[in-house]
Design a protein around this nucleic acid. Structure first.
Length: 220
DNA sequence: TATAGGATTTAC
DNA sequence: TAAATCCTATAG
């Protein structure tokens, strides 16, 4: 299923929009459209349906908990910039920096629904996974530190989710029970393009089903 | 300088 | 269930 990007929302979300706690931005980013001009010149877009918040230096699941290093430098900088890194030697993962300067918070985008006309390098890429959407949209470390309020990389308002669900984050068991079980992953419950099914159990045998948060901060 | 392991995906 | 694959962080 694909949807059209609303022609009345051509303006990218401003950097100031990201100057908030990562958990808020992560929730509000659901339904937004991530747009990237690929290296081959094509424009690729996906509607965000899954995000995760990494909430600061004290968040043991986040890279910044290891301190301020060359790798995490971008997270300590101003909001609205891209933090892109390689995991497992294979996959580029895309985050948006949030919060104030010196406070290393970021939102990881974990899944998108491809919008009409958007195809990956093999012509059949999916967007249901943090490593998959970057390949679909041609996002990689060349965009590290880039602003996200102007091309080639931008975020736009889109169809809001009817129901937002909060669950524990994926793949962060190493961080210990407290941080691994924190409900900092946000999904559009109606989407069929999630990286991990809602019916799947979270870490620690914790079921994500039934944990709901339908509130949204007012649009500005 | 050497080594372990990771915010994952894919194949066997 | 394991391999792919390389960068980062940490130890020596």
């Amino acid at each position: 299923m694909t949807r059209e990007l609303d022609a009345h929302e051509p303006v990218a979300l401003a950097r100031a929009w990201f100057e908030r706690p990562a958990a808020e931005v992560a929730r509000d980013l659901l339904g937004s459209v991530l747009r990237c001009v690929a290296r081959d010149g094509t424009v690729r877009m996906g509607r965000i349906v899954e995000t995760e918040a990494y909430v600061g230096a004290h968040d043991l699941a986040g890279h910044a908990s290891k301190g301020r290093t060359a790798r995490t430098e971008v997270m300590f900088g101003p909001a609205g910039h891209a933090y892109v890194y390689l995991v497992y030697g294979l996959h580029e993962l895309f985050n948006v920096v949030t919060g104030a300067v010196g406070d290393p918070q970021a939102v990881l985008v974990r899944a998108v629904e491809p919008l009409a006309g958007t195809v990956g390098p093999s012509g059949a890429e999916r967007g249901d996974g943090p490593g998959r959407l970057t390949r679909l949209l041609d996002i990689d470390r060349r965009l590290l530190g880039h602003r996200v309020d102007r091309p080639p990389l931008t975020l736009h308002r889109g169809p809001e989710p009817t129901e937002t669900v909060a669950t524990p984050r994926v793949g962060v068991d190493f961080a210990g029970t407290e941080w691994a079980s924190a409900r900092l992953r946000f999904v559009d419950a109606a989407s069929a393009q999630l990286s991990v099914s809602l019916t799947r159990l979270g870490p620690d045998g914790y079921s994500s089903r039934g944990v709901r948060d339908t509130s949204r901060t007012p649009s500005t």
